[in-house]
Design a protein around this nucleic acid. Sequence first.
DNA 1: TAATAGATTAGAATAGTTCTAAAGTATTGA
DNA 2: TCAATACTTTAGAACTATTCTAATCTATTA
Lengths: 138, 138
Amino acid sequence: MENLSKYKEKLASAGLRATKQRLMVCKLLFGQKQTFHFNIEDISRLANKSFNKKISLATIYNTVNEFKKKGYLKEISLKGNKTFYDTNTKHHHHFYDEDMSQLMDIEDKNVSINYLPKIPNGKKIRSVEVLVKIEDIK
Amino acid sequence: MENLSKYKEKLASAGLRATKQRLMVCKLLFGQKQTFHFNIEDISRLANKSFNKKISLATIYNTVNEFKKKGYLKEISLKGNKTFYDTNTKHHHHFYDEDMSQLMDIEDKNVSINYLPKIPNGKKIRSVEVLVKIEDIK
DNA sequence: TAATAGATTAGAATAGTTCTAAAGTATTGA
DNA sequence: TCAATACTTTAGAACTATTCTAATCTATTA
Ligand SMILES: [Mn+2]
Ligand SMILES: [Mn+2]
Ligand SMILES: [Zn+2]
Ligand SMILES: [Zn+2]
């Protein structure tokens, strides 16, 4: 696993020691070819499946939260009571198929907004997120 | 309270009997001059404050969920673990001040989207929601 | 190796939501 | 009218997601 040093760097920069469990979490989060959307339970299940190893939920929550603070992960604005995360940290948008509970990325460059209302006084825009809800045709 | 019959109709159309508690919830939700954003706890607190009456959380959850199904309320796609609702059921968008945890409506007509990517096969758009995150200047 | 610092983890605590069964209300039919 | 019965509502219990805590485990240092 030649990405190990990458992960160690990432952990160090988030102020976290590179422990076995955290390196596993890193591999699951950042070792995939594609970015993806997940919740905490997904990572727990993936750890069991991929490494035959149970990582305590506390460790997953802690690690994910620290990575979120650092900007290595983003939380997704979504309905429902479970928190969803995104390993795609580039600014982008989403298709959301509510029936399938399925999220798909839309690249920022594939959306263009003509105009927005004036921003409240003393405030400026941090980001503009578009959520396109889709459903089966008829 | 001359809106009582309005509320009774609303409840009936959602398949709910008009009980004291539900009429209170209706008054809190639909008896305001302006639409607003809320969570379940807000309604519970408002009931205490406005009517000096405790309404069981179950009743509030049930009523709100039925109204949501009926389209009399909308759930808001937002980060965080509390569910937020909107009494504004017209299609619209939001400013969100993350620091203040403050939502503000943007009328649909004040947003214009130039283009979107092609929709996945067999799907069509149900809605397009824009969330503009704002922050203090500087 | 012993002392210390730091990390992990299980389980407790908390918070949000859903479920359930006792209590309440409506309907039926004598 | 008024039991008997069926259906509905509600309070609180149960459950689930998340965070907190403190005991245990591991790594580092000297
Ligand atoms: Mn949410
Ligand atoms: Mn629009
Ligand atoms: Zn995404
Ligand atoms: Zn709104």
